[in-house]
Design a protein around this nucleic acid. Structure first.
Lengths: 188, 188
DNA sequence: CGGAAACTGTTTTTACAAATTTGGTTTCCA
DNA sequence: TGGAAACCAAATTTGTAAAAACAGTTTCCG
């Protein structure tokens, strides 16, 4: 009941955020939800706390999806890796990462937290990639740090400017193609 | 003789630019070269003209290198493509692209020119890639637009932040690995 | 309880004039 | 011819004071 409303506030804040970016105000959220600020402050002590909880909410969702993929049966190592690689950027559709400019300066704590979780989110994937290498699936000389940079940078680029929309390629298609090229690229 | 000095000014300006970015002044250049502004204005009518000529200087160099690779004999299609792909970002070491922020606002004409030349610089490479596809070397379903985005984004990332330096991978090695993964990634 | 709205101390934005810097020209001089 | 330096109009930066917006609290009221 109470948790429902808390979640509701988080989700609404995400929606408002995707429109107004970090500049959103508590009044914006209240207005969007048709409630008063008083109610919001009943569940959260500050705006920063809301942002903080949103980070948890997003990344916990990803973590959950990761666990599903990891415990899914009947998948080859390669298939599992593929799914894992795509799972992360798929969640990018939820929140508009391009509106995150200035986070580092305005909310350094949240910035660091996000950075940490973005970083640790790669661990299961790297684990599978290393397994693949050990099994002789991937080239011994493949440097996964480069792999990671390429993946990160490519996905990030999809959100910058109009690159993707201008070329008319759906995001999910582009994402799959990137994963495809990268995995084929390090395969023996 | 005169051309020598013109070139000298261009190269010196690049050096100063790599230190001070777009904020460099004519006095900076004159001081660095140990000459007076008068001499600079003998060869160039304005600062913008210098920047303009630098763009030509850089891209003409790339163009020349491209022509060399294209006319080099005894290379397989794949080897030629490889060299071509690496040629472009190799020139990035000459000029510090990270200091180019604000170019779009300060010198829109030069920004557009650079964008155009960056864009057209891909044409020979795309040509070779298409040839490769026609010869059955690359997958028919490989989308070179995605390929290009991945290449661009990855190389650009190498210059942002400390990504590369922190991991201790030399730029040229990283660049080769990217080209390697991408070409293997679309190969049949 | 919770919405509407007023309230307050702080932060952010705006506005604008003063001070500085800069691009480009000119003068002097060796 | 070309360096040093003065010069000037235009652009940029800086300082700052007023205005606006904001986060968070409180009051009123149904």
């Amino acid at each position: 009941m109470q948790d429902d409303q808390k979640l509701d506030i988080l989700r609404s804040t995400i929606t408002v955020f995707n429109k107004k970016g970090l500049k959103l105000t508590m009044d914006d959220i209240a207005e969007y939800m048709g409630i008063s600020k008083k109610t919001i402050y009943k569940y959260f002590n500050s705006k920063e706390e809301i942002f903080n909880k949103i980070v948890d909410y997003i990344f916990d969702g990803i973590k959950k999806r990761e666990q599903e993929i990891l415990s899914e049966e009947g998948l080859s190592l390669e298939q599992r890796t593929r799914k894992l690689l795509a799972a992360f950027p798929e969640s990018y559709t939820e929140i508009d990462f391009t509106k995150l400019g200035g986070l580092k300066d305005k909310y350094p704590k949240i910035y660091r937290k996000m950075k940490r979780r973005l970083e640790s989110g790669w661990e299961p994937t790297l684990e599978l990639l290393e397994q693949g290498k050990a099994q002789g699936l991937y080239r011994k000389d493949a440097d996964f740090r480069i792999f990671k940079i390429m993946m990160d940078a490519s996905v990030a680029r999809f959100f910058e400017t109009d690159t993707l929309r201008k070329s008319g390629i759906p995001y999910i298609d582009a994402l799959n193609q990137v994963v495809d090229i990268l995995l084929s690229g390090i395969r023996i």
